[in-house]
Amino acid sequence: MLDAALTRPEEIQKKSGYHHGNLRSAIFDAVAQLIGERKSLAFHLKDVAALVGTSQPAIYKHFENKQSLLVETAVAGYGIQKKFRDYALDISGPSPLQQLLAVGYAYVHFSRTYPGYFLLMKNLETDEILSSPQYQRQRDETLHLVRSLIAECMETGLFHKTDLNLVMTSLQSTALGLANMYLLNQLEVVARDLHKDKHLVSRIFKVSIESFLTPEGKRHIRNAGANPFEDTD
């Protein structure tokens, strides 16, 4: 079962002491919490220090400046996102179509569970974040996985042969758009009769992917397992 720490966001707690390594993690979580609340990077390191319950000089012992802290927070966010993805892939069916859906479900659930990390990684990337070699590797790893699954869907006759980049863009638009609608509380405005539907994410993904499916692909998607995060959304 997915680690309980990944199924819901945790409020940052002020502490008088930390075990080795915990302070850095608490700082990352505080940054993500501030971004989630403010929907921007408009905060100072003193705000982070106050939220964690440490001093601003203590933060400077770990991070050179705010930009370096944002880079490492984004890297940490990708690590959390990967845990969601790995969990979904581990329990998904073996077909590349089922695995592709699992990656999409994990993406949206991560955005809803850790909105601050998600916003930093997807909407508020700084030049420093984008130029980080580690961040680039993490992003490229994710994109390569999705591209490989799409290519395998075509090779195994689940998708029609078409432009892989077109499929990639369509699915990414669906995932990012749905995630942002949840983050900005727009679903209730757009679809009042659907926003509480716990199956909405899987329903939207299946509608989005339908135009690419062959008859065999449609059979596979009918037999695809449920979104593993539906009970926690």
Rank of each mutant, 00 (worst) to 15 (best):
L51H: 10
N123S: 15
L70D: 06
P94Q: 14
H62D: 05
A102M: 04
V108C: 06
P94L: 05
A74Y: 01
A76C: 07
S55E: 06
R85S: 15
L70F: 02
G116D: 05
P96G: 10
F110H: 04
I59V: 14
Y135V: 04
A76G: 03
V108P: 02
V108L: 07
G77C: 08
K61E: 12
I59D: 01
K83E: 06
V75C: 04
L69E: 08
G79F: 08
I129H: 06
A88F: 01
G77N: 05
L97Y: 13
V103W: 07
Q81E: 14
K83P: 06
L130H: 11
D86E: 15
R85C: 12
K122F: 11
Q98L: 01
L124Q: 07
E72I: 07
T73Q: 12
L89K: 02
H62P: 00
P57T: 05
L124H: 10
Y117R: 02
T54E: 00
S111P: 01
A58Y: 06
L69Q: 09
T54H: 02
Y117M: 00
S131M: 13
V103G: 07
Q134K: 06
S132R: 01
Q67G: 05
Y78W: 15
Y107H: 15
H109K: 15
I91W: 03
D127R: 12
N123W: 04
K61P: 00
S95H: 07
N123P: 00
A74T: 13
G93M: 04
L119A: 03
L51F: 09
S131F: 10
M121L: 08
S68N: 15
V75Y: 03
G93S: 12
G116A: 05
I129F: 01
M121Q: 13
L100V: 03
A76Q: 02
Q67Y: 08
S132V: 05
V75H: 04
D86L: 09
Q81N: 11
K61N: 14
G79N: 13
S68H: 15
P115Y: 13
G79T: 10
G79P: 09
A106C: 11
E125S: 14
P57M: 09
T113N: 08
S132E: 08
K66A: 13
F84A: 02
L124P: 05
H62F: 07
Q134F: 09
V108H: 01
Y105H: 14
F110D: 01
T126Y: 11
T73S: 15
F84S: 00
V71C: 12
A58E: 14
E125Q: 15
S92N: 13
S55M: 02
Q134T: 15
Q81Y: 14
V108S: 03
G116T: 04
L97P: 10
L69V: 06
Q134W: 01
